[in-house]
Design a protein around this nucleic acid. Structure first.
Lengths: 230, 230
DNA sequence: GGTGTTTGTGACAGAACCAAGACAATCCGA
DNA sequence: TCGGATTGTCTTGGTTCTGTCACAAACACC
């Protein structure tokens, strides 16, 4: 359904909510501190943030303000305190909704859906950006030059990225080392074509779950490499 | 502030909320039944509906559904019952928020504001000028050529401004140094493309909170730069 | 199984890349 | 004209990348 970032320091609550929301079909990234949450926002795409107010270190209000600085991601505040002042302060800090614990998972889920319906929700991904390619768990955005695995961006070095883009440009087709050298290393490169092997290896280490049984970049012995989760 | 339609059968509560919201600067139209509320929507412009669930005649859920059929007006449900099932049912019927009575007027007001902020709110407040873009803490007015950070105008030199406008014209997309040189420095520029680096750095110094962890202008090593918070 | 070939893996040093600051040439308004 | 702002260039320093090598593992063929 959507990508939820859950920021909650209490592990039991965190695990419970993560499990429940995952069951409802959301992808949940759960972290324990505000700092981790902000870091996560930088590296992972999210549709909505569920934010506990009582956090170690940076408190919920501050986290809320920081998130507002980054963009207009919807925020649902979560707290044990049912103080009217807190509600007002929370909403003024930029929260979209304010929920008092203990909260039933399905109530939280209904509120997430209400907020997403209002904000246009998960349409952000795929909807407004053409040129976003999906290969199983792998997403390739050729415009932004971002490759994501399970929704989390993968950090690829320039050459690694060019290699992957070249391979994925013709899925299912085998490309020889020579072809790849010419396409990726542009300027008449003269050295060893084993260079391609090394680069493929580096890419695999970053995008494959098990690099001894590669799914995305397959070796075709004697010929070259092929991209394709078939 | 905004036009609020209040649908609540209990006269004391109705008058109390009307008074309080009016004091906050809203224009409140208060009615006692769902039928009156729907009629009112037909004749009067409203920005948000505050809807009691327990109504004589047509009940709140039904009213909610009817309003949804009319358009995209935000709805805040109000009820004495604090039953999770009701919350879920209310939100699924299309409500944007669900508040349990008794409710402090200022809490209700904060929730109204939160909903309005999200929906673009305030039919009365000023003409959303076209060409005014919001990226988190950064506002870009292409017509006025003004860039503001946290509401405060930033003083950008001509070239810096052109660079930022060019980058932000395609948020999320990576632009190479060469592309930027051609777009921003127009006249067939031949020199070092490191010039772009220097200019990016100057813009960053002015718009980024922490230029060692840039949010708005991101470096894509080996390729170029990308504009985009989140 | 033995053998030769091909490919995977990890380490490493030089190369490439970028941030940051300094500086001089240029532009522009007072 | 003067003084400040702007802009292109250069240098430096730190970080990351990348081509290469040596060796291990996998494979094909006999």
């Amino acid at each position: 359904m959507s990508q939820v970032l859950l920021i909650e320091d209490h592990q039991t609550v965190r695990d419970g909510l993560q499990l429940a929301l995952t069951r409802q079909g959301h992808t949940v990234h759960a972290v324990g501190t505000g700092e981790q949450g902000l870091e996560r926002l930088r590296t992972t795409q999210s549709d909505v943030v569920v934010l506990d107010l009582m956090l170690p270190g940076m408190d919920g209000f501050e986290v809320c303000r920081r998130i507002r600085q980054l963009g207009d991601l919807p925020i649902i505040m979560l707290t044990a305190r049912n103080d009217d002042m807190d509600v007002v302060a929370g909403l003024e800090a930029g929260a979209d909704d304010y929920v008092v614990k203990p909260v039933q998972a399905r109530v939280l889920e209904a509120r997430i859906r209400a907020v997403l319906r209002r904000t246009g929700g998960d349409s952000r991904r795929g909807g407004d950006r053409a040129g976003l390619e999906q290969y199983g768990a792998l997403t390739i955005d050729r415009a932004a030059l971002v490759v994501s695995k399970d929704g989390t961006p993968v950090s690829l070095a320039p050459t690694e990225l060019r290699l992957l883009l070249e391979l994925s440009h013709t899925p299912g087709q085998v490309l020889s080392r020579q072809q790849l050298l010419e396409a990726v290393w542009e300027h008449g490169y003269l050295g060893d074509s084993r260079l391609v092997d090394a680069c493929v290896q580096r890419v695999r280490a970053k995008i494959e779950a098990d690099s001894s049984a590669p799914v995305f970049i397959q070796t075709v012995r004697g010929f070259g490499y092929r991209f394709g989760p078939l």
